[in-house]
Write a protein that binds this DNA or RNA. Structure first.
Lengths: 190, 190
DNA sequence: TGTTTTGCGATACGATCGGATTGTAAAGAG
DNA sequence: CTCTTTACAATCCGATCGTATCGCAAAACA
């Protein structure tokens, strides 16, 4: 065998370039040629590491999910894990999270037609639901069912706010204020 | 002048076909040829009524907004206008509203690159915000600022739930229950 | 030192795109 | 009836797409 190459590493680099293009110009701008050019490699090399475009897109979604998970976990790791910190980490407030949100948004439509991508979205959603429910139960001493419902409210609220921030309908500060307002109700009511 | 034709009517029909394709197969499947074929007309006719594809897409967004506005208004007109009814009308629960939500979602990305489309989205958002704030103030007797914030929470929550329902992460019933839970807080707390 | 296998650049292919051009039938205007 | 304008069909164009194929250099194995 020739030139020993880390296949995963190549794929990750290509996927990262793909996400950059998707965030900047939309999924429709993602073509083999564009990705190759932006990554500074040849079209042939891209083909060498992905059997087709769909697989390339799926891989980009998988690694995006990993990236988001790592970032959210990192954002809460300096302090003890905190419900508020997780919710705020889900908002597109800096370049990194904004790019992730843009890419996720760009991929939403793919999820309707690609079951594998849909499965990744759903897994992320469920994981978040459960994590938030655990936080609510721990921080506000609610019983399981109530905690789950409050977590659902917070998750949907944060998702809606994230979209609004992304579209420029609200500022990040406004979104945080609204999250705090909702959290305050839990504290006061419990 | 030959064959007297209602230009607006033709444009509306073409736009409706465009939205149907966008809802079923995504915006990327929307091409002049596809729209023409689905509408049972020639490519030339589509070109005759829209100077280019972008204008066609913009027109489709404008008429979508009208359609949503009419539906939400109609859904609340049999009974006296009602905060809960408006929020529920925003969820993708039947074919009509689901299609609208899908199309809106498909157009979100366009809004990032097309200022005119972004303006229509923003206008719809602001209109909804103000309407909801008025409802909250009227039904729960809150002062202006509190009413506006509660309306913001409800709007973001409903938007997040609408997305979750659309993606199949939740059922419509669950979404309605969560909206009711949030509304109950306003009633109890006020 | 061949031989084989892999990495990857180059290029060709057919399909499809948005847009421009051209042709023509119909219908009011003169 | 002639002329002009409009409605639309048909076709062409250059660009770009995803994919297939070909060719060759590098490197491990024999």
């Amino acid at each position: 065998m020739p030139k020993v190459v880390d296949h995963e590493e190549r794929r990750r680099r290509i996927a990262a370039t793909l996400r950059r293009i998707a965030a900047e110009e939309g999924l429709e701008a993602v073509s083999l040629g564009q990705v190759a050019a932006a990554a500074g490699i040849s079209k042939g090399q891209v083909q060498h590491y992905f059997p087709n475009k769909d697989e390339m897109l799926r891989y980009a979604v998988r690694t995006l999910r990993d990236q988001v998970e790592r970032r959210v976990a990192a954002g809460t790791s300096d302090a003890p894990p905190d419900l508020r910190a997780v919710l705020v980490a889900l908002l597109p407030l800096d370049d990194q999270s904004r790019t992730e949100a843009l890419v996720a948004n760009a991929f939403v439509w793919r999820a309707f037609k690609d079951d594998e991508i849909a499965a990744w979205f759903r897994a992320g959603y469920e994981q978040l639901r459960e994590a938030l429910a655990a936080f609510v139960a721990a921080e506000h001493g609610l019983t399981g069912l109530d905690a789950a419902r409050e977590a659902d409210l917070l998750l949907a609220l944060t998702a809606g706010l994230a979209d609004a921030v992304l579209l420029g309908h609200r500022t990040g500060e406004e979104a945080i204020e609204l999250i705090d307002r909702q959290l305050r109700r839990l504290t006061d009511g419990g």
